[in-house]
Design a protein around this nucleic acid. Structure first.
Lengths: 256, 256
DNA sequence: GTAATAGTGTCTGTGAGACATTATGGC
DNA sequence: GCCATAATGTCTCACAGACACTATTAC
């Protein structure tokens, strides 16, 4: 058992042989999703340098010595967009950010060995992000991108293996909406049940039955809670809701 | 767009500045689970050196230059146990191995910055592994370990943050058994429905109703297929099954 | 009026939970 | 005989899918 400060450990720490491991760079990449105009969209950054100059890529960067991985993902996102995503600040809900998976195939970056820890995030703050000073960052509707099984083959191609990372992030989002209340992370409060349903429809790419969806959401304790207010767009005024305390749905809302 | 071999790219490759990123070691760690004597168990290795000398840790090691991450996980497991886990060789099913998540908090290894990509695996081959030449590797029942929410606080403590990795691996296994057919990866063929049910009970830590479980499994097309043979242990002879072609369960078998 | 969305009510089939009962082996 | 496990049958309740219908706004 290691006792901090013993001679054995100090000796070990100083004699640890760095040639035992291959040099690897570790980066974080973030798949930040939002729903704009009823379409699922992902934040991408135009690459300034080689390789893949001019192509669109996920925001991300190297892990700094004092970052933990979650912190690195948040920091990179804030650096590229000026907007903080995860958590809650001064009572304002800022969306959701969670680790997706890691990608480390040799050659996925032609410069050197890079292992990327990917994150996936959900946000409603697409206007704040698109309007930030990072003019090279914008949201792309995912079905305008060249991603197998999601966009069209002649869509916009992405840099590196980011098409696969986006695909995995979308699949994570689709699954999360089934068994958690995270669809509300795509919305600012207050929101209507129609807006919430359109989040599901955009993420799943399926239309949902209005009446059944309403019954399901309102019968799940803590999914949403009523504000008593109503909103007027087109059609009948809609009741306004805010997020409830529940995080998981049981039973789940299954994809059609 | 990058054209391989252009002057611009060649220049970039040679002028890439290694001081831009912090040195990080990348390792893989494997949470290999099995069911022995009706208890969920995990493969651990006794540490020979500092830090955490003498404590039990997950099998793992550095990612080699030509490994992809999945390959590194398989190789490390084979090096430590002499047994191949993932895939299928000569018609023999060798279990299941998938990426879990990555762990990279600063200080999680006192020697240096290490990012570990963790994998979780399921196997029936606990005898082959325990009987291999790696005498320092053995399966531990998870509830004999000091893992919050799973074992007892005075159980065997693990090295590094491996208690949390094991906990995350167990949670992944519990979730996977709900919506996939991977419970069969814990069993050699052929198997009885009673053996399959005891896998669920060991992983979930809950007892299941025999009749309802049978109805559910047999009514899911492709979960198992009958062999026509029967096995005799204690009680009435039980029909023997092998894995079917299905991989996902819909609807899922929900934990009680 | 029409169009569009919000909201309510009802029927029906599927499937899970609970329970009882029978079958077939070892001892 | 008893005990243990396998295997079958049945009742009931929850809930999702489908559908019809009403309500309230803008135009």
């Amino acid at each position: 058992m290691s006792e901090p400060g013993t001679d054995a450990e100090v000796e070990f720490l100083t004699t640890y042989d760095p040639s035992k491991y291959a040099p690897v760079a570790v980066t974080v990449d973030v798949v930040l999703l939002t729903v704009r105009a009823g379409r699922l969209a992902v934040l991408l950054v135009e690459r300034k340098g080689h390789p893949f100059q001019g192509r669109w890529a996920l925001p991300g960067g190297f892990v700094e010595p004092d970052d933990d991985l979650d912190g690195a993902a948040q920091r990179e996102l804030e650096e590229e967009t000026g907007v903080l995503i995860a958590g809650e600040v001064a009572g304002v809900h800022l969306g959701h950010l969670e680790q997706l998976r890691s990608y480390g195939a040799p050659g996925r970056d032609p410069r050197m060995r890079v292992v990327s820890v990917a994150y996936v995030g959900f946000t409603a703050r697409d206007e704040a992000i698109a309007g930030s000073d990072a003019a090279d960052a914008r949201f792309w509707a995912v079905d305008d991108l060249a991603i197998r099984g999601i966009g069209s083959a002649d869509g916009v191609p992405l840099a590196f293996d980011h098409d696969r990372i986006v695909a995995d992030g979308i699949e994570r989002a689709r699954a999360k909406l089934e068994y958690t209340t995270l669809a509300t992370a795509f919305l600012d409060e207050p929101f209507t049940l129609g807006e919430l349903r359109r989040v599901y429809e955009a993420v799943w790419g399926e239309s949902l039955h209005e009446g059944n969806f309403r019954r399901k959401v309102l019968s799940t304790p803590g999914f949403v809670e009523t504000t008593g207010e109503t909103a007027q767009t087109v059609g009948r005024p809609a009741a306004l809701y805010r997020r409830g305390g529940a995080t998981r749905l049981h039973p789940a809302i299954l994809r059609p």
